[in-house]
Design a protein around this nucleic acid. Structure first.
Lengths: 138, 138
DNA sequence: ATAAATGCAAAGCATTTGCAGTAAA
DNA sequence: TTTACTGCAAATGCTTTGCATTTAT
């Protein structure tokens, strides 16, 4: 998905600026579920002129394009995931690290809601403590 | 849980002020998953002196006490749920309405993570479209 | 009395936006 | 050259906090 955006002329009206390419490059295959600031911090090292606005604008564009998923997993900030395939997440209650739970997990769609809602998807958050952390925070 | 806080002398050091009682009263049995502002708006009608700070302070106290659950479900604001029993949620992608999914939903805890994480819980978000909304937003 | 809560306003962060300048196309 | 993007700084929106005053206990 991100590869497509990195290639010339693949998307109409999408300009491949150095800033965007740097962000795409950093995001591609990234499994750390970074926040906007995480991304800025890393990308700004090599692109000293990079601004926060550009990171936010680019993320917004990528989310709109469906190339990046915005995660509502951290109560304090949005996090971004370049993996748009259906998968779930495990959050360490100690350090807030987020790791992927690959693959399908069958969930029984609740019955009784069928008339009021048409259900289009789901997302499971697992809470745990990673081996580096001892005690929960949440 | 909230009932306990509403009764005199049940919790050491917890003062039953009119503002807190009004918030507890509004929250008790509330299934609307309100934001802090939602709560403020309603409670301030009957308590004209109510301030935002008091709502936030009280919510913080209630969350610390485990009497209220803070939901990380809405990308734009925190929401609060007086129902602290294990249950899941269904979010309308149109209007952001959140409804409870009562009861247990068995999920297979992912294997392979067992050595790195000790899993202590999970929360499922279902996404759907309620009967009042036609098209998704997220 | 005294320890804790209120309310106001200011401060703190994450995020968004207006706009003039800049650079892809 | 046209259209979109950048970067700055100001603005926004949610949430937190300092502090003097008030209040439950």
């Amino acid at each position: 998905m991100l590869k497509k955006l990195q290639q010339k002329g693949m998307i109409k009206g999408f300009k491949r600026t150095p800033q965007r390419l740097a962000i795409l490059d950093h995001l591609d295959g990234n499994k750390s579920h970074p926040s906007a600031e995480d991304i800025y911090r890393v990308v700004a090292r090599k692109n000293p002129s990079m601004s926060f606005a550009t990171v936010y604008n680019t993320l917004h564009t990528l989310v709109q394009a469906g190339a990046v998923r915005e995660l509502t997993i951290d109560p304090d900030r949005k996090r971004y995931d370049p993996d748009t395939s259906g998968h779930h997440h495990l959050i360490c209650l100690g350090c807030r690290k987020v790791v992927d739970i690959p693959g399908d997990i069958p969930v029984d769609v609740p019955r009784g809601m069928s008339n009021e809602f048409s259900i289009v998807g789901n997302h499971i958050e697992f809470y745990g403590i990673c081996s580096h952390c001892g005690k929960p925070r949440k």
